[in-house]
């Protein structure tokens, strides 16, 4: 995760929000639960501690409010687009939603139109999932 964070820091094109506030994390988790959605996984929260929401070309990773870019609000976004009860949307691109499937305990890239799983990554492979949705890669 640190490697990915360093890599993203070097990329001038991603918008970096202010660091995450712990109180806001608790409030956001409560709100997601109230919406009937699973809570955000610890590995994603680790990522948000470094980058609380970021936008790239045609894609974005959502963050916990308050945010400078309101379009990255994870609660608003899930409220608008999420009708599932076992997945929480973490980001998106033109093709699909990046979600955490709490039932399967995996990160998935799901097609926006058909809800078909395009990519699947294990709980400890968030960095691959993030790179996939932001269309960046490093080794």
């Amino acid at each position: 995760m640190r490697k990915l964070a360093e890599f993203l820091a070097q990329c001038g094109y991603v918008h970096l929000e202010k660091p995450l506030n712990v109180k806001n994390v608790v409030l956001a988790q409560k709100e997601l639960t109230r919406q009937g959605l699973p809570m955000l996984p610890p590995s994603f929260l680790d990522f948000l501690r470094q980058y609380n929401g970021l936008s790239a070309q045609d894609s974005k990773i959502l963050g916990i409010p308050p945010l400078a870019n309101a379009n990255l609000d994870i609660i608003e976004f899930n409220q608008d687009f999420n009708q599932s009860d076992d997945m929480v949307i973490l980001g998106c691109d033109d093709f699909g939603f990046l979600v955490y499937n709490a039932a399967a305990k995996t990160y998935q890239l799901i097609d926006k139109d058909s809800s078909m799983v395009l990519e699947e990554f294990a709980d400890n492979e968030l960095e691959y999932a993030v790179m996939s949705v932001l269309h960046v890669s490093y080794e």
Partner: peptide, 18 residues
């Protein structure tokens, strides 16, 4: 417009509700 209008009707559904 891309997110809220053109993709405004996209929904993430559980597998059982596809």
């Amino acid at each position: 417009i891309h997110c809220h209008v053109l993709h405004g009707f996209d929904r993430l559904n559980s597998a059982s509700h596809k």
